[in-house]
Design a protein around this nucleic acid. Structure first.
Length: 490
DNA sequence: GGGATCACGCACG
DNA sequence: TACGTACGTGATCGCG
């Protein structure tokens, strides 16, 4: 029986910080086993096994095989109790190989273009920096929120909009509000945008390009998120800019391995709202998706009680915000802030929404009750998240627990679905001995490096693999795009 | 003097 | 006072 205790324990409880053998032995066997770190040391004291005495090794990691076997059997028993065998054996375990292959294969980068991009950013930063110093009347460290706060709120006398626990807040939301009061403010925003791109993306990515492969080999972590999503580190390839055009250009440096390949980028359309429609069995929402309607326009028509043809762009954008809010476990305060409307008005939108989607209303109530009774909520594929917050006497913590209860089954089920799709696509490419490779996942999106001669075949494997990953009460719609770099796949 | 950690801000779905 | 992440920089703490 192939087993992975780390992933196994994650399926039993996704909320832990680490899943070391030592910890699992304690938790599942009531056994005290030294942590590997205690043996090897860490940081500058780190010692390799090969530099240790055999008897020291045998007294500690020597019993690991025994412990791992025992813990595995214990966890496997819990899978049976929890009905999580399919999740573990059919989804998470096969996913290990798909993720490993993604890490190993990597994503090719145009190094020269990235170096050029970095230089261009630096030139822009130099210009803006001087402008800021002139407007401030002195030089200071713009990167320091503390120093910036002194300049903005003491020297220039701008009004304090918001405070952090240590001083003045200078975040983008605050600066947006101040942008009409002094020229320096928009320069600060521009400076922040440029520095973010240069440090995190230009320099950050250059630092992790493997000199042998010319590629970026990210780590895809399978036991980090509480909802079941995967995460990406060193570097994070799941937060490459796209929203602003200047940042989006970073994507031009992500290219195929060579001229025989292209990139395919396949996105699920509105997967979380489709999952919501499925889970709640809400007739109104299901019909919107069955008719292939624009969901935000459809929501606007429902909420405002008008025909879809009469929905204005502003109405659509407000309905979109409400749809987002619903998925997060909405509150009137936050929706009001997001839409810059009154709390009362926000409350009306929410109430109207819940009237028009009555099963969504029932679901949001019931899932919180279920979370309280059972102590956890589950996804479509029995992924589980415990919610101790629901029992808290602290209102804020308890409210947070309620929002988690509403959001986790939605976000987590979407994660289940794309993982199933990944296993299918990865398996199919392998089975057919194709040269195309799955190289990245970004929560609702899969990126494949496709061998040009295989393009038609692989596009079908990808889109059908995703569409048919599961069968819901609404269709899963997938959009596939291709390009000679990641920027072009739009 | 340099490492660890916290605070802040911000990139993505 | 919206759900889930990763990470760079500055400030601070405390270490033979």
């Amino acid at each position: 029986m192939a087993f992975d205790t780390m992933i196994g324990a994650y399926i039993i409880n996704s909320s832990k910080d680490t899943y070391t053998i030592s910890e699992l032995a304690q938790e599942y066997l009531n056994l005290n086993v030294k942590a590997v770190e205690e043996l090897t040391g860490k940081g500058k004291n780190f010692t390799l096994y090969r530099d240790m005495q055999p008897d020291v090794l045998s007294k500690t990691v020597g019993i690991y095989p025994y412990v791992i076997n025992k813990v595995s059997r214990k966890i496997d028993g819990l899978f049976k109790e929890n009905n999580q065998e399919q999740l573990y054996y059919d989804i998470e375990l096969p996913l290990v190989r798909a993720l490993a292959d993604m890490e190993y294969y990597g994503f090719k980068v145009n190094v020269n273009a990235l170096v050029e991009f970095s230089k261009e950013l630096q030139e822009k930063i130099d210009v803006v920096t001087k402008e800021i110093y002139t407007l401030a009347g002195e030089e200071f460290n713009i990167n320091s929120p503390k120093q910036l706060g002194v300049i903005l709120f003491e020297k220039l006398g701008l009004p304090v909009i918001k405070k952090t626990k240590t001083g003045y807040s200078t975040d983008a939301e605050v600066l947006d509000e101040l942008s009409d009061r002094h020229e320096i403010v928009e320069k600060i925003l521009e400076y922040r945008q440029l520095v973010k791109l240069k440090s995190t993306y230009a320099e950050g990515l250059l630092a992790v390009i493997n000199p042998h492969t010319g590629k970026i080999h990210s780590s895809f972590n399978q036991t980090v998120t509480v909802t079941g999503r995967i995460s990406s580190t060193e570097p994070n390839l799941q937060n490459i800019p796209i929203k602003l055009e200047m940042g989006r250009k970073v994507r031009k440096v992500f290219i195929p391995s060579n001229e025989n390949y292209q990139l395919l980028d396949a996105d699920y359309s509105q997967i979380e709202l489709r999952v919501l429609a499925h889970i709640t069995d809400d007739e109104n929402m299901i019909n919107a998706f069955l008719n292939n309607e624009d969901i935000h326009t459809s929501t606007a028509a429902s909420v405002f009680g008008i025909p879809k043809e009469e929905v204005t762009p502003i109405m659509r954008s407000r309905a979109k915000a409400v749809n987002f809010g619903i998925v997060y476990g909405i509150g009137d305060f936050s929706l009001a802030k997001d839409l810059k409307i009154s709390r009362k008005e926000a409350r009306m939108y929410i109430d109207s929404y819940l009237d028009r989607y009555p099963n969504v209303k029932r679901y949001m109530h019931d899932i919180v009750e279920e979370g309280k009774e059972k102590g956890f909520v589950t996804t479509m594929f029995k992924r589980r998240r415990y919610l101790p917050e629901l029992k808290s006497r602290n209102f804020n913590i308890r409210s947070f627990g309620e929002r988690i209860a509403m959001n986790t089954p939605i976000q987590g089920s979407a994660a289940d679905i794309i993982k199933i799709a990944m296993v299918k696509v990865h398996g199919e490419l392998k089975k057919r001995k194709l040269k195309s490779r799955l190289i990245l996942q970004v929560h609702d999106e899969l990126i494949v490096e496709v061998f040009k001669e295989e393009k038609e075949e692989v596009e079908k494997i990808l889109s059908e693999g995703m569409q048919n990953a599961v069968s819901l009460k609404v269709p899963l719609v997938v959009e596939v795009k291709s390009g000679n770099n990641w920027y072009e796949t739009k």
